[in-house]
Amino acid sequence: MTGILPVALDYATRVLQALLLEGKEYVCVMQLHGEFSPQILETVVSEFVGEIFQRPPLRSSVKRRLRTRRIYSLDILEIDGRSVLLRIACQSGTYMRKLCHDLGEAMGCGAHMRELRRTRTGPFTEDDVFSLYDLLDAFKFWKERGDPESLLGMLRPMEDALAFLPKIYIRDSAIDAICHGADLAVPGVLSLDTPIEQGEMVALFSQKSEAVALGRSLMSAEEVLVKDHGLVCKTQRVLMPEGTYPRSWKSRPRQG
């Protein structure tokens, strides 16, 4: 099956854990196994929008227990005989093959997925996608002719992957401590996205819009704005190499 596959290089592989949890969008061809009325299909499809229960298929890479997944939208784009072209926006970890099967069960006639194309992974869409051939051409252009322009356009900053996460911008002086794994405290915060709920995944950014780390918020955005001390965010994944910014905390003198 085809579609959007963001590939992260070297240090940028660290942002993938955030990208894996992002919402996805697909276009798929569902093949129904019997005659059906378009009106009934319309009704059945609308019932699948929102929270659904889904048991991962027999061949899947996760434990096969019933779990809930959110379908943000489900649209019928085209009907041609028993083939139905669907556009689906859903939470990560929703199985499209299973969704088509379950839609078929609900219709009564059965169905399976015939074709699938992913049209979005979080912030990455089909608008700025490149083929492996494009990539190879761009690399050769740079290596053989010294022209970096097209390659520069393809290698997007890893920060792009974090576009939909709530962000907290921090002081230069807080950055290196975070890079060493420290948690973020209130005095280090300069500005932040609202709303942020406690326990939500957040991205810590420098004032130059560089990603510093991923973490889990320990207080809501409202609390951060009014408090003058306390921990804001538990650092979970450092995205910036140590020493990018100067170290500005005092270490305790060594004993002995």
Partner: peptide, 15 residues
């Protein structure tokens, strides 16, 4: 460009 090889993402169309 050299830094982008370390901190970059390519949005590929999987064949």
């Amino acid at each position: 460009l050299e830094t982008r090889f370390r901190f970059g993402i390519v949005n590929l169309d999987k064949p």
